[in-house]
């Protein structure tokens, strides 16, 4: 690389970082305005502008070499997303949001799997050094854990609200034990991965178990609690995005993900209070509601 090329690269990197900084500020301002009825619209526009800047900033990255697939994906996403936003009736709002979560979380999960594949399984595995790999694996672990359980959880929430699946809470004997075992298994795989990051079996087992946990978490929750669940899943999707940021070293992902994670969490607490529902019931699913379910 010549001196001129590296200077150009540096300038590009600085522009990209400034764009990210602006995007992060816009997300915060947007979120703040969204809590005030008369400014909410402007807040949404600020957040949308932030998203646009984040996309532009990412496109400027030096690692990005081909744009074909990115542009294809962006076009497909726009074509699918536009009617989903424009023509869904207002009464179907919570399930629409759940459906949308499924897409966002699926993206985070796929990125996690792609990163893992690149690290150890691809044609040219990058095989990072042990300490780097541990840190990255911890981040990737959180990413696919939250991502996968949000995908299946959102799918269940969508199904219950759309009434593919009965809106009544589904409980059965031994549910708590099963959920506890699944949870322990996921944590076990996660721990295993941090100790031995190149363990392919543990990684995919963890993805599978997280999917199962997502189903199990929403199964015992009734339709009336569903908006709170959707908001909680929003929080998980944010945490997954944030973990992606840790894994690939990207601050705008960490910031937007953390904003989303925290605000989704607090919003679900506020919502369950406003609706007079028990938040711990929703958070712990079967653990809280198995006895009191009607």
């Amino acid at each position: 690389m010549t001196a001129a090329e590296s200077t150009a690269g540096n300038v590009q990197e600085i522009i990209s970082q400034v764009t990210y900084l602006a995007a992060s500020v816009l997300f915060m301002l947007g979120l703040r305005s969204l809590t005030k009825p008369d400014e909410a619209r402007r807040g949404m526009q600020l957040a949308a502008l932030g998203m646009l800047l984040a996309i532009i900033g990412t496109m400027l990255h030096r690692e990005i070499l081909t744009y074909t697939w990115i542009v294809t994906g962006l076009i497909v996403g726009t074509v699918v997303g536009y009617p989903l936003g424009k023509f869904v009736p207002m009464t179907a709002m919570p399930q629409r949001i759940a459906f949308s979560h499924m897409f966002g979380a699926l993206a985070a999960t796929l990125v996690g799997i792609g990163e893992f594949y690149h690290m150890y399984q691809g044609e040219q595995p990058s095989n990072p050094s042990a300490s780097d790999a541990r840190f990255k694996m911890a981040a990737l672990g959180f990413e696919v854990l939250f991502g996968a359980l949000t995908v299946s959880g959102s799918f269940m929430a969508f199904g219950k609200l759309q009434e593919f699946i009965t809106g009544k809470p589904i409980t059965f004997k031994g549910q708590n034990v099963l959920n506890g075992l699944l949870f322990l298994a996921a944590v076990g795989c996660f721990g295993w991965l941090v100790v031995e990051p190149n363990n392919v079996l543990a990684f995919y087992a963890m993805v599978g178990i997280s999917f199962a946990i997502g189903f199990m978490l929403v199964l015992p929750i009734g339709g009336a609690d569903m908006p709170v669940v959707v908001s909680l899943l929003n929080s998980y999707a944010g945490l997954a995005a944030s973990a992606t940021g840790f894994a690939i070293g990207n601050n705008v992902l960490i910031i937007a993900g953390a904003l989303d994670g925290a605000s989704g969490f607090i919003l679900s607490i506020v919502m369950s209070k406003a609706m007079n529902r028990s938040f711990s019931n929703v958070l712990f699913g079967a653990f809280g509601s198995a006895g009191s379910a009607v």
Binding site: L34, A48, A108, G238, L253, G257, D260, G264, L267
Partner: peptide, 22 residues
């Protein structure tokens, strides 16, 4: 509306996706 907006913001995983795709 806030739930819908934070849902849109959680689409920030788009950034990670772009890095992986490109």
């Amino acid at each position: 509306p806030l739930m819908a907006a934070t849902n849109a913001i959680s689409g920030i995983s788009l950034v990670g996706s772009i890095v992986l795709a490109g």
